[in-house]
Structures are given as structure tokens and as C-alpha cells.
Design a protein around this nucleic acid. Structure first.
Lengths: 220, 220
DNA sequence: TGGTTTAGGATTGTATACAATGTGCAATCT
DNA sequence: AGATTGCACATTGTATACAATCCTAAACCA
């Protein structure tokens, strides 16, 4: 493990990325360049660069001469986001289907075996690993990049689920079904289950968004 | 038409984008910040920003502390690029299938009618319009963005075809078949024809790349 | 009282100066 | 002769200063 020295711009980028993805930075919040500089102890140049990178990732909106804001998505946009992710991830799954190593799948299946008593954190971790596995097994680099972007953009919404009483066991069963379908190399079933899994997540997110809109008034 | 005042960074971006897409800047060529400044009469800050945007578009490679280069793609990468574009564009076509206005299709069909005597330029123009139509009719914004990126990244290779005696008439017939399939709302046929059309283009590009590799020695 | 205008402050866009790092060549040593 | 080390140069990364624009709000006029 080398210390991996990284530039100031990368540090700012990673810091802000982490905060946005984890939900620390509220959606719609302003990202003033000077404020970021003061907070992280760098000059405006790397701060600007980091904001541009976050804009590239679709996590930040930039308005010329007005500044940057953490991207706030209305329900329609969220729906489109998950829709697109479902398409692309299913595509990636189908393309790399034969390349997914059974050993990794077995490990994931084992991590899910006592489906009844899984903590939410453990379930989420397996979810990450499953989607990462699908991503990495895709042989087409461009598709990999795009699926990665979709995962990144939808990631901020995952924390929402922790705020609601998500049916952990049912969702874990969905994941298990996907993994087993891949293990027995049932292409169409795996793709269908994956799509349904992502769309199920979308519905849950949209439900929470509707609740928030009803409660908070102003959208996210 | 407002003059649409644009920032220095945008001007540099548009300028370089145009040059790269049109093939004026040779693939693999270095893009020195200072050199660009001197050429376009701006300072290094907007030049850097433009290079970052081109990097985002996948048209420029950035090596830390070493500089930027026009992205040079080996045949395997080119193949992957067109493959990914075919998948995404077919997806976009299917999603926006019913939304493609017949009037626009009719216009394109008319522009192709005397298939025998079409200039290469006219044929390319119709190609642009056809793919733009498919892109714009897709209702999912994220998918639109991604298909747009794919079109951008594959665009530099289109000029290659002008260097070879591409069978203009045959390709025009392919386009006509796609348009007619959409007009009669034959979903599966349209998707299949579009995929074959893009893959055909890929094969042609790869053939030329192989020729260039054989002739020039060093890759693009 | 309500709308318009204009000064003020704050923030982004751009230019430039400085610091850090990589590259290439030449001199030296084995 | 070949490899290696050291130095000079070129280029990128960062910091800071200046210019242009936008937002706010108070003052002004009808």
C-alpha cells in the first residue's frame, strides 16, 4: 500500500464526493468556492476543479456566474435515473454474464444465508458488492464507465432507505434470487430479477420522496 | 438569435472540440496548456478548464504532471466504443420509438429518395439528422446524455470513411430501411437494422484502422 | 404606496506569479 | 561502450490578485 499522494484538487473532490454521497451536504445546498477553500485549506483553483468533476458526475449543478449547488432531483428525475440505471446495469450483466466468477457469487450467497437475521448495514454491503461485481465483470469499458456513473448518481438516495422501515428481509431475498440465477447461469431470469430489484428500489425511493414533499413542503 | 455570449473557457472548448472531431488535431498529439493559450489568446485558467471538459467527453487523455493528449484509440477500443454506442442507441430508439414524429422521418426519407445519386456529404448529413432524431426522441434525459456522449466519441472516426471508397449507396439504403421501419412502427425490425447499421460502420472503421496500422506503423 | 433604479457587497471568471514535478541531455563512473 | 547520476529546462499544479457580473436592498420618483 503506497501512501498514494494525491493533488489538492483530488482531495477536495473526494471530500465533497463523500459528503454528497453520504447525504451530509443537503441537496440544493450552495457550494461556494470561497467557502470550500476556507473549509479545506486550499485555494480556489483546486476547489473549482473539484466542483467541475462533481458536475461531470452529475452530482452538482453549475449555473454560470451564479455558483454551484448540490443537485436536487425532483421525483420525475429520480424515476428516470433509476430507469436508466436498470437498463444499463442489465445490459452490463448480460454482456459479462459468463465472466462473473462463481467463487465471488458463492461468497455473496453465503453472506446472505441467514436471511432472517441480517442487519441493514450488512445487507447494504452485500448490495454494494453485488452491483460492483456485475459492473466489474462487464467486458466493455465504456459501458462499465456509464454503469459506474449511474451507481454513483443513485447512491445518494440509498441513505434514504435507512430512514424508513425498509423490508430488509424481502430485499435480501431478491438479492439472493439474483445471485442464484447467475450461479445457475440463467441469463433471462437474472436480468429480469435484477431489473425488478432496481425498479423496486426506485418505487421505494419515490414513495419516500413523496412523503418528504408532503411533509417538508419545498422539494429536496 | 441572440449573440449568445460565451465565456473564454467555452470558446476554447468549442474550438478544440471542433478541431478534434473534424480530425484537424492528430490523435495522440499533445495539447500543451501554454501552447493553447498562445494560440487562442486566453490565459491558462480557461484553457485548463476546456481540457478538463474534453477529458470528460472522452476525447482527451490527462496524465498528471505530464499533460493532455488527443485520445488515440487502438482497434480494440474502437470496437468497444461502437459496440456500446449500438447498445445505447438501440435502447434510446426503443424507448422513444412512439415519440418520433412521422413528419421528420418523411423529410429524411425524401432527402434519401434518389438513392443512386447522393453525394457523400449529403448522405452524412442525413445520417447526422437520423441519429439526432433518435437521440432527441428518447424521453429519458440520462440516456439521452449518454447516447450523446457516444455520438461525440465516435464522431472523429467518421471522417475516416471519407478517405476510403465507402459504398455510399449501400449505406444510404441501410438508412432508408431504418427510417421506413420506424415509419411503419416496426419496433424489432428498426432496432435490428439500427444495430446492424452501427456495427457495419464499426467494421468499416476497424478495416481502415488495420490498413493504417499496416501502413503507418505506429498506431493512430 | 408601489414600482423602478441605482449603489453596494458578494461571488464567479480570468490573468498571472510562484512552487513542484517530470523530461531530456550531458558528464561521469564502472 | 553502456549505464547512471546530476543539472537545466519545460510543463503542470497551486495560490493570489484583478475584472466582470449578479443579487440585495435601500432610496427615489410617480
Amino acid at each position: 500500500m503506497k501512501p498514494k499522494i494525491q493533488s489538492a484538487a483530488e482531495q477536495v473532490y473526494n471530500h465533497l464526493l463523500d459528503e454528497i454521497v453520504k447525504g451530509t451536504r443537503p441537496a440544493g445546498g450552495k457550494l461556494s468556492e470561497e467557502h470550500i477553500c476556507a473549509e479545506l485549506g486550499v485555494s480556489r483553483t483546486p476547489a473549482r476543479e473539484a466542483l467541475m468533476l462533481l458536475h461531470r458526475d452529475g452530482l452538482v449543478e453549475r449555473f454560470p456566474r451564479r455558483g454551484c449547488f448540490v443537485k436536487s432531483q425532483d421525483p420525475a428525475e429520480i424515476a428516470e435515473l433509476f430507469e436508466c440505471r436498470a437498463w444499463l446495469e442489465c445490459l452490463a450483466l448480460e454482456q459479462g454474464f459468463e465472466l462473473i466468477p462463481d467463487a465471488a457469487l458463492a461468497k455473496l450467497e453465503q453472506a446472505l444465508t441467514p436471511v432472517g437475521k441480517l442487519t441493514r448495514a450488512a445487507s447494504l454491503k452485500v448490495d454494494d458488492q453485488l452491483h460492483a461485481l456485475i459492473l466489474e465483470s462487464c467486458p466493455n469499458r465504456h459501458l462499465r464507465e456509464m454503469v459506474g456513473q449511474m451507481l454513483l448518481r443513485t447512491h445518494p438516495f440509498r441513505v434514504w432507505r435507512t430512514q424508513v422501515d425498509a423490508p430488509v428481509e424481502a430485499i435480501s431475498r431478491e438479492r439472493l434470487a439474483i445471485i442464484r440465477a447467475i450461479r445457475r447461469r440463467d441469463r433471462v431470469a437474472a436480468a429480469r430479477l435484477l431489473r425488478e430489484h432496481i425498479f423496486g428500489g426506485r418505487e421505494m425511493i419515490l414513495k419516500i420522496a413523496a412523503q418528504q414533499a408532503a411533509a417538508g413542503g419545498a422539494g429536496v
